[in-house]
Design a protein around this nucleic acid. Structure first.
Length: 468
RNA sequence: GACCCCAUCGUCUAGAGGCCUAGGACACCACUCUUUCACAGUGGAGACACGGGUUCGACUCCCGUUGGGGUCGCCA
């Protein structure tokens, strides 16, 4: 039987990083097994589901390259089928109507809490005669859970997990308004979509028991469950939308490359020996549920950044410029000029090893697109004082008489000057750097000068000298 | 509170009873390289939560303790 996995987010917000990893693991496993990876939008909660969230999820998945193999399934569109299944259960005596009001249920929980008991539904209407039913209340339909024995789930990640059936209460399958709940819908849809492996967050582990019971009641075979540990925030608590989790779009905006995020996510909870930096193809060939860890892990931006730096290093200049364009034009307040783009292209190879994120890259390459006169930061100003200025003026004149403006010639000229003046290279290199870039940090200045071009480079030196 | 899960350097992890003097990666600290900053390279510091078993031998198996996490919705 061919493997079918699914990612089943609820459209109540952005696609957060934990969801992204769940999608990734489902995707990887399907790819590894030569199976299918599907997407199901769990939108049965009509009050909280929004089209914006659906778009955000689709966008996020697309950005990461984790779009599903088939059109997404919208759970709510299957509601008739869900209701039909509930009716069947009702007919078989495996479900019943419950007339408790939300207030009564709340009181029930409070009481249980006060008495330090488990806060479960007490089964009030399970065996109660329907003639007692209050006429003014529309009932919900509950599943008649098993009362005795215990249930074992052989989770592909967690191993055998056992829970006493008495721990499970009669969950609601159909709301008073007639719409199906998640617990019922997942079962029906996973069955109908022929899902073979359910890879999802650990927070669903207890749900797996309820779902197994529904599968059994329906005479269906449950899928193989694989509950992956959650990703925690730096504080060690579950990362969720309401607890510091960011949408994948935020990672994109922070300048992370999708392949870096994917590579990092792979290493959170899964490993292949000591491999840290690997391609998606390698991940596909290596991925196995058996190698997923059981313990939760914490999200570490430092490591993501480091990985991102490696991917930036591997990226071609043209792509990096495209990724930077928006940010550059924002700081520039106008479109990137052709000449600046050419400079960036030439300078990119030595720029990219200095940056871990796109904003950093933009910052580090700003002197290639910023126009004269450059603003000097504090360090640059300090480098442009006293003797430095006279050195600059002298170097400027020998540079000005260069027959051909290319890196070797520039370097030779500056080094000649250094030799004649009997000073250290740094004595003139730092002021030059300040003049060319407005800062004290940059790639080699001979390269920078060459890329800037004669007119621009000499002009910047003039600007620096004229400051006094 | 009840139930369930988890537990190796600060973080992510390797480790399937002897291969472990516990390995790698990030972060950190030195040094090398060097016109600055990075990159790279070299070195350093840094962990098997604790207590009992089992075994000739436990990071690895069992039990307990402690710690952390998750779930207990007409949310998913």
């Amino acid at each position: 039987m061919s493997v079918v996995t699914r990612f089943a987010p609820s459209p109540t917000g952005f696609l957060h990083i934990g969801g992204a990893r769940t999608a990734l693991f489902n995707w990887l496993y399907a790819r590894h097994m030569g199976g299918k990876y599907l997407l199901r939008i769990e939108d049965t909660d009509r009050k909280r589901s929004t089209p914006e969230a659906i778009d955000a999820i689709l966008d996020g998945l697309h950005w990461l390259g984790l779009s599903p193999d088939e059109e997404p399934v919208f759970q709510f569109s299957c509601r008739d089928r869900h209701a039909e299944v509930v009716q069947q259960l009702l007919d078989q005596g495996l479900a019943y109507r419950c007339y408790c009001t939300p207030e009564e249920l709340e009181a029930m929980r409070e009481k249980a809490k006060a008495e330090k008991r488990s806060m479960r539904y007490d089964g009030t209407w399970r065996d109660r005669d329907p003639v007692d039913a209050p006429a003014d209340i529309t009932p919900v339909i509950r599943f008649k859970a098993l009362e005795d024995g215990e249930t074992v789930i052989n989770d592909a990640v967690q191993g055998a997990v056992t829970i006493a059936n008495s721990e499970m209460d009669d969950l609601i399958m159909l709301r008073a308004d007639g719409t199906p709940t998640y617990m019922l819908s997942v079962v029906v849809d996973d069955h109908d979509m022929e899902i073979t492996h359910v890879i999802r967050g650990d927070d669903h582990l207890t749900n797996a028991f309820r779902q197994t019971h529904i599968f059994n009641a329906l005479g269906w075979t449950p899928p193989i469950y694989a509950h992956i540990p959650l990703i925690h925030g730096p504080d060690g608590a579950k990362l969720s939308k309401r607890h510091g989790a960011l949408g994948v779009d935020a990672y994109r905006d922070m300048g992370y490359l999708p392949e870096a995020v994917l590579n990092y996510l792979c290493r959170l909870g899964w490993s292949h020996g000591d491999d840290e930096f690997f391609s998606l193809d390698q991940a596909i060939s290596w991925f196995d549920i058996a190698d997923i860890n059981k313990g939760a892990s914490r999200f570490d931006f430092d490591k993501l950044s480091n990985l991102n730096g490696k991917y930036i290093d591997d990226a071609p200049p043209a792509r990096l410029i495209e990724l930077s364009r928006h940010g550059i034009e924002e700081t520039l307040g106008k479109p990137l000029s052709k000449i600046a783009e050419q400079r960036l292209t030439k300078g990119m190879p030595s720029l990219k090893s200095r940056s871990n994120t796109i904003p950093q890259l933009i910052e580090n390459s700003s002197f290639y697109f910023l126009e004269r006169p450059l603003a000097f930061d504090a360090k640059a100003k300090k480098a442009l004082t006293g003797e430095a200025l006279s050195h600059l003026a002298s170097v400027r004149s020998s540079l000005g008489s260069l027959s051909e403006w290319k890196q070797e010639n520039i370097e030779a000229a500056v080094k000649d000057y250094v030799k004649t003046a009997d000073i250290k290279l740094g004595t003139v290199a730092q002021p030059l750097r300040a003049a060319f870039t407005g800062t004290n940090i940059s790639p080699g200045i001979f390269e920078v000068a060459a890329i800037l071009g004669r007119e621009e480079a000499l002009g910047r030196i003039d600007d620096a000298v004229a400051r006094q």
